[in-house]
């Protein structure tokens, strides 16, 4: 899923303070799981902004709303009236949702309430961590199911680098060394012989480097 994190309230305030009728619009899928941008969090952000507006003596009508998914037009209908009544939207979706809302309501400014942080999973309650960079050429089959592109600070394909100490990354002791995890996993799988296979040059043309990516399914 996509993980996001709320921007500081001050930063949000600077973006929206000159509006008259602001809708805070939640997105109740990915960013709801990390409790940052779901419909509930949109309500909380709206309350905080109302308090801020009152404190600053600024008159803005701040309402809240939400839909299940901001990255797909099919889900937009329930938000139609709310958006029509607002002069701007503060979206609590990821960057994708923000852009789809902006593309659909062409006359409304749309602001992001979150920083989209990574593609990850729920490690434990309240802990989310990155697992994928959407590079477009998955290497997990060669690396024991652990991704060195998203989990190694240098995305080293033939690791580990010399900075791996006690299973931790040189940049931060909180971060496990991806290549230590890979070696441990290959050992568990009885595949240590695979460690010496040289990973070829990665084809980054399927990554961001190749330009914006599109997937077309002719059968749909």
């Amino acid at each position: 899923m996509i993980v996001g994190q709320q921007k500081p309230l001050e930063e949000i305030w600077e973006m929206v303070k000159d509006r008259k009728r602001l809708l805070v619009l939640g997105c109740n899928t990915c960013v709801a799981i990390c409790h940052e941008g779901g419909n509930k969090e949109a309500g909380i952000i709206a309350s905080l902004l109302r308090m801020k507006a009152q404190k600053e003596g600024v008159s803005i009508k701040i309402t809240e709303g939400g839909i299940e998914r901001q990255c797909e037009e099919e889900f937009f209908a329930p938000a139609q009236t709310d958006i029509d009544e607002a002069d701007a939207v503060l979206s609590t979706a990821c960057g994708i949702g923000v852009q789809f809302i902006a593309a659909f309501w062409k006359d409304k400014p749309v602001f992001p309430a979150l920083n989209t942080t990574f593609l990850g999973g729920v490690e434990q309650i309240g802990v989310f961590s990155e697992r994928c960079q959407a590079c477009g050429s998955c290497v997990l089959g060669r690396t024991g199911g652990i991704c060195p592109i998203s989990r190694c600070a240098k995305r080293v394909l033939n690791g580990p680098c010399g900075g791996s100490v006690d299973g931790r990354c040189e940049i931060n002791k909180e971060i496990p060394c991806a290549w230590q995890l890979i070696v441990d996993r290959l050992k568990e799988l009885g595949q240590m012989d695979r460690y010496e296979e040289l990973s070829p040059l990665q084809d980054w043309s399927k990554d961001r480097a190749g330009g914006p990516r599109t997937l077309k399914r002719e059968d749909l």
């Binding site: 033939n158 680098c161 791996s164 100490v165 299973g167 460690y195």
Partner: peptide, 18 residues
């Protein structure tokens, strides 16, 4: 001296192969 120690020799072999 880096970790994991058990791959330090295989890693050298890999660099030589490269």
């Amino acid at each position: 001296f880096a970790d994991p120690f058990e791959i330090r020799v295989p890693r050298l072999a890999k660099k030589i192969a490269a």
